[in-house]
């Protein structure tokens, strides 16, 4: 048994060359591919974890937003209920005010209508009284009625205070002696004489005709009126009737 040392050395060189070549074309590339895949897998895992963390954070944020929305919805509902209640109260109060105003206006209108009706009734009563008085007067002899009123006028003048009677007599603008009908001259003279006698002296008289008096005589100056007619009596009665109503 012999060993060929040249062959031994050549085989050793052959093996070293093989080691060098395989390291270049096999071991390093394949190991690099394994490391690259491990790196990529690790990167993907880290990225996945990062994405999962982001997704968890987003989910938590969505849950928080949802909870906030629920709370906001409750708050809005409560606010809307409060506003509706306030508006309802305001509408009710406004309606109540309007109703009160309508009631007050209706009451006022009712009173006004009642007052107007009462005024109409009073006016109608006065007209009726005047009409009655006129009809009654038509049945009486006008001369006697006028004579009676002249007597009443004279009596009133007689019963006046002397200073008042003197002031009336001395009225500068004169005294209007108002009657319901036009008088003849003779009758005017008779009446003027009776009045001047009652006044206690001559007075400046001027006869005026007013049919509204119905019957009677009235004396008028700028500062004095002596009512002595059926019209004045009826007005007094009507006033009393109104007061009584």
């Amino acid at each position: 048994m012999t060993i060929d040392f040249w062959g031994l050395g050549l085989q050793a060189i052959n093996f070293l060359i093989l080691v060098w070549l395989l390291t270049r074309v096999f071991w390093r590339p394949v190991a690099a591919a394994i490391v690259a895949r491990q790196t990529a897998a690790r990167s993907l895992l880290n990225e996945g974890k990062s994405l999962q963390a982001k997704a968890d954070a987003a989910l938590a944020e969505v849950a928080e937003i949802r909870a906030g929305m629920a709370a906001e919805r409750e708050a809005l509902l409560a606010k809307a209920a409060t506003e509706a209640e306030t508006a309802t109260k305001a509408v009710l109060a406004e309606a109540r005010d309007k109703a009160d105003k309508l009631i007050a206006a209706a009451e006022l209108a009712r009173k006004r209508d009642a007052e107007a009706a009462r005024a109409r009734e009073a006016a109608r009563s006065a007209e009726l009284a005047v009409d009655i008085a006129r009809r009654l007067l038509d049945r009486l002899p006008r001369e006697e009625v006028q004579a009676a009123f002249l007597d009443l006028l004279v009596k009133a003048l007689t019963e006046m205070k002397p200073q008042d009677r003197a002031a009336l007599q001395g009225a500068r603008e004169g005294i209007e002696l108002v009657g319901p009908t036009d008088l003849e001259a003779a009758e005017q003279a008779r009446i003027a004489k009776a009045v001047q006698t009652a006044l206690g002296g001559p007075a400046k008289l001027r006869f005026v005709t007013e049919p509204e008096l119905i019957a009677g005589f009235e004396l008028r100056t700028s500062h004095f009126v002596l009512h002595n007619s059926w019209q004045a009596d009826l007005d007094a009665i009507l006033k009393e009737l109104k007061h009584a109503a």
Partner: peptide, 30 residues
């Protein structure tokens, strides 16, 4: 240097291993 059959076979094995490794390890992908 005496070239024996073992050396020739070694060269053949080297060629097969290197060429095979080269061909198989081309285009390594992820």
């Amino acid at each position: 240097v005496a070239i024996t059959q073992a050396i020739l076979t070694t060269w053949a094995i080297m060629a097969v291993l290197v060429l095979g490794a080269y061909l198989l390890s081309r285009n390594l992908v992820l």
